[in-house]
Amino acid sequence: MSEPTLDIIAIGNAIVDVIAQADENFIASEGLEKGAMQLLFTTEDAEALYAKMGPGVEASGGSAANTVAGIGALGGSTGFIGQVADDELGKVFKHDITALGVKFDTPMRDGDPATARCLILVTPDGERTMNTFLGAAQHLHVSDLDSDLIESAAILYLEGYLWDPEDPRVAMEKAIDIAHNAGRRVAFTLSDGFCVDRHRGDFLRLIEEGRIDILFANEDEIKSLHETDDFDAAVAATAAKTPLLVVTRSEKGAIAVQDGERTSVAAEPIDQIVDATGAGDQFAAGFLVGQTEGRSIQDSLVMGAVCAAEVIQHYGPRPEHDMKALIKARLG
């Protein structure tokens, strides 16, 4: 069996974040709920709001894409599989993610729907009102998978957010087979409590069938998975059937359970929480890089905690500091 040439390959929603300033009157005139997230269901709705927005900053986003950006910042080698349309924002996504050194060769999709985007309106008080159009991201098909790329990575990383539409769900199941047949590990993040509510049966099936080697969850997600308020019981039930379970607990730190052995770390000290967006994504980046570097579970958890602490102290879901230097200062 050949040695991997990449550390991690991720499959997820290919989304472009568009962030612009807006006043209270604009929020009200568009009938938006300030501070909330709403879905936009058509290209026309997304284009109409996009056209009305003021000058903004555009950057590639999406949960798993944010994780591979973090992996790249830590010096890991990585790739991404996700669907964009052949349009302006599709080109923005491709440029941004490849500029980070991420291998991204998924063919662009012609025609409707347009590239997924999250239109983020920031009011003067710093509140973010998000409007998400999933668009082309929901049309990732089995035929878009690059088997050689998946086989080349030590770990395949999948996001639960992409489990909603049928085509990507079938593609991710196929990708798991490709990775396991090549002797690689599969990591999966539950992504969100609402995702767990919608797909609990499928997620439990994947765990029962031994198709997930590394499972990421936060405290609420792991309890939701087993429909219990007993955190320790939920962890025990999942860890019994998952080779490596990683659970983040916000200010309480994080735990991992491997072969029945539980390891815990405290949250890293921070000056101030500015924006919690991307904390889980960057934790996963740090932990996965630790694993591909052959570090202990303890050190991998610390790396995840350092990455999460960095990202919550500034706006945006991706690292802004020298992450390799931060890790070296913490672990040597």
Rank of each mutant, 00 (worst) to 15 (best):
R185E: 11
T98N: 06
V122Y: 04
A69V: 10
A240E: 15
A73S: 14
I176V: 13
R295H: 13
N131C: 12
I270N: 11
A65V: 03
G160L: 00
I15C: 03
R198P: 02
E293N: 13
Q291C: 12
A10T: 04
G126C: 09
A65F: 05
A276Y: 06
D167P: 15
T115H: 11
R200K: 14
T67I: 00
N181H: 12
R169H: 08
I212S: 04
E268V: 12
G54V: 12
L288Q: 00
K252E: 15
A116V: 13
D110F: 12
V92H: 09
E58C: 10
M108V: 15
T248H: 09
P55W: 10
E227V: 12
G61C: 02
M130H: 02
G126D: 10
F216M: 04
V84G: 07
I214H: 02
L245C: 08
L49K: 06
F203D: 01
T248D: 06
V102K: 02
K223P: 11
P124G: 03
L301A: 01
R117P: 09
P124S: 04
D275H: 04
H199Y: 05
V196N: 05
D229H: 14
M303S: 01
K91W: 06
R318I: 01
A266T: 13
E219Q: 14
I19K: 08
V57H: 15
G304Y: 14
T5I: 08
I178C: 05
G101L: 06
L244S: 07
R200V: 07
E127P: 02
T189W: 00
E166F: 13
D232R: 01
S29L: 04
A179T: 08
G135N: 07
A279F: 03
E24K: 07
V196C: 05
T248S: 11
A233C: 05
L206K: 09
A267Y: 07
A137F: 03
